[in-house]
């Protein structure tokens, strides 16, 4: 293989890891609570702005910014859960779309109002430069995001499958009434799930901010990718989101290189639709 092709694939994998990173929170909420969060992309955007604020005010990079963003977004997640989602969940599914779409606009344009329309970035060398491994360029900031994506996936997976908190959360998502009879408080479990999901999303935003631009409307660009990643991976499946993210990243990268950049999304959506035909539950989802 030519070194360019290896570079294309490596680039695709790193990109895919980022997709997986900002999709893991969505799959948790969507799959576990059956809530479609149209504001997900804007949670990523908030994480980016938190990282930017941390850097401007304290002059420190994502090693401080990312945990802070995770904390801030976890708080936002809990507020959103108690303020909106809890009551919306009692209504029809359309009410969730209505409510989270309104929330998306509210968040996006509150940030617009506070920070203005200008594009911002973090300095490129905040995480480190670019490594050269046998002629393949590896950007430190993307590498960090990729590693964190793996850690977050692993962590969430272990949390859900190996801890009592995880089993309680799953129990609530299976049957809230039955869980309540078992002495589990569905409200607290779902609030915790929102905190974890939003926190992971904030973390993702802060890491993406190290190599992406920051703008109030950036959530629109990223949100739809997350939707495709989550449904390809299977709703609620954290490992599924990782595999799907990597797959989409590589397909995008390779098709952009070979077929043309305008066609990469056409390829992704077509493959996605074909895939749904044969396996409607996604890669790792349950029917």
């Amino acid at each position: 293989m030519s070194s360019i092709l290896v570079q294309v694939i490596v680039g695709g994998l790193l990109l895919g890891a980022v997709y997986a990173l900002f999709s893991s929170g969505l799959t948790l909420i969507w799959g576990m609570m059956n809530v479609v969060n149209f504001a997900h992309g804007d949670f990523v955007m908030l994480g980016m702005y938190v990282a930017f604020m941390v850097w401007t005010l304290l002059g420190v990079g994502p090693f401080v910014g990312a945990p802070v963003a995770a904390l801030v977004l976890a708080t936002v997640g809990v507020i959103v859960y108690f303020g909106l989602i809890r009551s919306v969940m009692k209504g029809p599914m359309l009410a969730q779309i209505l409510g989270t779409f309104g929330l998306a606009l509210l968040l996006r344009y509150s940030v617009f109002w506070a920070f203005g329309a200008n594009f911002l970035t973090l300095p490129g060398d905040l995480v480190g430069g670019t490594y050269d491994v046998l002629g393949i360029k590896l950007q430190a900031s993307r590498l960090l995001a990729g590693v964190v994506a793996l850690l977050v996936t692993l962590g969430l997976h272990l949390l859900l499958t190996r801890t009592s908190l995880g089993s309680k959360m799953l129990a609530v998502s299976e049957d809230a009434t039955a869980a309540q009879l078992m002495g589990i408080r569905p409200d607290s479990m779902q609030a915790i799930a929102w905190a974890i999901a939003a926190g992971a999303t904030g973390l993702a935003g802060a890491l993406i901010a190290t190599f992406f631009y920051i703008a109030p409307t950036v959530g629109e660009t990223l949100g739809i990718v997350a939707f495709v990643t989550v449904s390809l991976g299977g709703f609620g499946s954290v490992p599924g989101a990782l595999v799907a993210g990597l797959l989409i990243g590589v397909i995008e990268s390779v098709s952009a290189y070979w077929i043309g950049a305008v066609y990469k999304d056409i390829v992704v959506y077509s493959l996605f639709l074909c895939f749904l035909w044969f396996r409607p539950q996604g890669l790792m989802g349950k029917m």
Partner: peptide, 10 residues
Amino acid sequence: YGAIIVIIAR
């Protein structure tokens, strides 16, 4: 606009 939608949905 977003706030009003949120309030109605809520």
